[in-house]
Amino acid sequence: MRAFSYERASTIEAAAKAAASTDGAKFIAGGTNLLDLMKLEIETPTHLIDVNRLGVDRIEPTPEGGLRIGALVRNTDLAADERIRRDYAVLARALLAGASGQLRNRATTAGNLLQRTRCPYFYDTSQPCNKRQPGSGCSALSGFSRQLAVVGVSDACIANHPSDMAVAMRALDAIVETVRSDGTTRSVPIADLHRLPGDTPHIEHVLERGELITAVVLPKPLSGKHIYRKVRDRASYAFALVSIAAVVLPDGTGRVAVGGIAPKPWRDEAAERELPNGARAVTAKLLANARPTEQNAFKMALVERTLSAVLAEARG
């Protein structure tokens, strides 16, 4: 790990300002992703701003009938919150399907959204990787790509986003609230938070330098069956090959977001309108522009079958 200076921020404004004014600064929340990457010197911040004591760790009702989740709410506490379990079960389920009990106790709402890919070459500093070292090439394209994305990819990068939580938040149309270093705030729909790789896979989201996530807002609850189904290589403590977050109404309409297959939670409202016509119709639209590799082409069928199981559960 490279050496760094450290400060504990006590106000939102101070944290954002410090991040923008200090070269090489990064926020640290749970640290479960950032420290992992710092140990491998994939992340090399020269200054860490600890945001754990900002006090943005509560879940509060909004005037619109939704919930505002503080950026520092731990994954365990979010999944255990009574209102989340009752009114946003798809989110509780997605959180509980991720990582381990220990990790969820530390992992935060904001950190989970901004966690980086698990592409094996991104982690292997002896291999070329455009995301880690722009312009060096993508080792995954001709390498081990079984886990990686099939849609939303580019010639520069086929990494997938590893978060479970974000997939449910995409289905729920969550909104990410931030504060910039000049003190101005903005709201970013989760659909717009993560960027597709294009020619610049090292730029993963739309946040500016020093922009701090303060909360994630959930609109008012959606009725219907809330389901999160995750398919992985072992039954627990493994990242998704494919996951589906769905809210399905009795008439067969609803919402579907898919994880494990793209650089961001993948949802397509046109594909969603096919829900009453079944999993095959939805998948055909959802994956129309997919570009799988030989090794991950199985995800194409897996998405359809997982969705088919989800729809059966919704009917059941």
Partner: peptide
């Protein structure tokens, strides 16, 4: 040392955490 095995599990304010993926200074 990367959060993958749980051998380092300790309790911080009563909650179990992976001691390898957190900095000591964060536990003031």
């Amino acid at each position: 040392d990367h959060g993958q095995c749980g051998a380092c599990t300790v309790l911080a304010d009563g909650r179990r955490v992976n001691a390898c993926l957190t900095l000591a200074v964060m536990h003031e």
